Amino acid sequence: MNNHVFQMNCWFEGHVQGVGFRYQTVSVAKGFDVTGNVRNLVDGRVHLYAEGEQSEVLAFQAEVASELQNYIRGAEIKTDRGPRACQNFRIEQ
């Protein structure tokens, strides 16, 4: 048995910086069994990385997208499996 977890990278675009997006994402993460991080990118997007059980990660991403839908114009998602890389969920600078 391997210890690989489901991993998701999501890039949100729209009016997603300067609106509390990262802090709201961290708040949403507290309701899910996920680890990872969220950070602003220089091109104006927000990058969300989350890992854990597939159902938890996908539900978490869907909740973030739902709660912040007024700011999001689009999202690109890539998923994979790999070793756990994070111990908690936090904002990356």
Rank of each mutant, 00 (worst) to 15 (best):
V26L: 05
Q17W: 10
T35Y: 07
S27K: 15
F21P: 02
Q24V: 14
G82K: 01
G52L: 05
H4T: 12
G14Y: 06
T35P: 01
N3G: 09
Y23W: 14
T79I: 11
E51L: 01
R73Y: 07
N70V: 11
R73N: 14
Y49Q: 11
V34P: 03
G44P: 09
V46F: 04
Q93V: 08
F89G: 01
S27D: 15
S66P: 00
A65K: 13
W11C: 13
G74W: 08
R39I: 10
M1I: 14
P83T: 08
L68Y: 05
K78S: 04
E51W: 02
Q93D: 10
Q69W: 04
Q61W: 03
I91E: 09
N40S: 06
E67A: 14
F60L: 02
C10Y: 01
L48I: 11
A62K: 15
N2K: 11
A59V: 08
G36W: 05
R81Q: 06
A50L: 01
G44F: 04
A50G: 05
Q93Y: 07
A85C: 07
D33R: 15
M8F: 03
V28H: 01
R22E: 13
A62S: 13
R22W: 05
L58I: 10
S55E: 15
R81N: 07
R84S: 14
E56F: 04
Q7A: 06
Q69E: 07
N2H: 10
Y23N: 11
Q87N: 12
D33C: 06
G52M: 09
R81V: 10
G74I: 05
H15I: 10
K30E: 15
E67Q: 14
S27T: 11
I72T: 10
H4F: 09
E63H: 12
N70E: 15
R45C: 08
H15D: 03
E92R: 13
V19C: 09
Y23V: 13
W11D: 10
A59W: 07
R84W: 00
G20T: 06
V46H: 02
L58V: 10
R90A: 15
A59F: 03
E53D: 08
C86R: 03
E63C: 03
K78F: 05
F60S: 03
Q54F: 05
V38H: 01
F89Y: 08
Y23T: 13
F60P: 09
G31K: 12
V42D: 13
A62G: 04
V38F: 02
V28A: 03
V34W: 07
R73I: 03
G18V: 03
A85W: 04
K78E: 14
E13N: 14
E63I: 00
A75H: 05
V57R: 01
I72Y: 02
G31N: 13
C10N: 02
R81G: 01
G82Y: 00
L41A: 09
I72D: 08
V46P: 02
V42P: 01
H4S: 12
S66F: 13
Q69C: 13
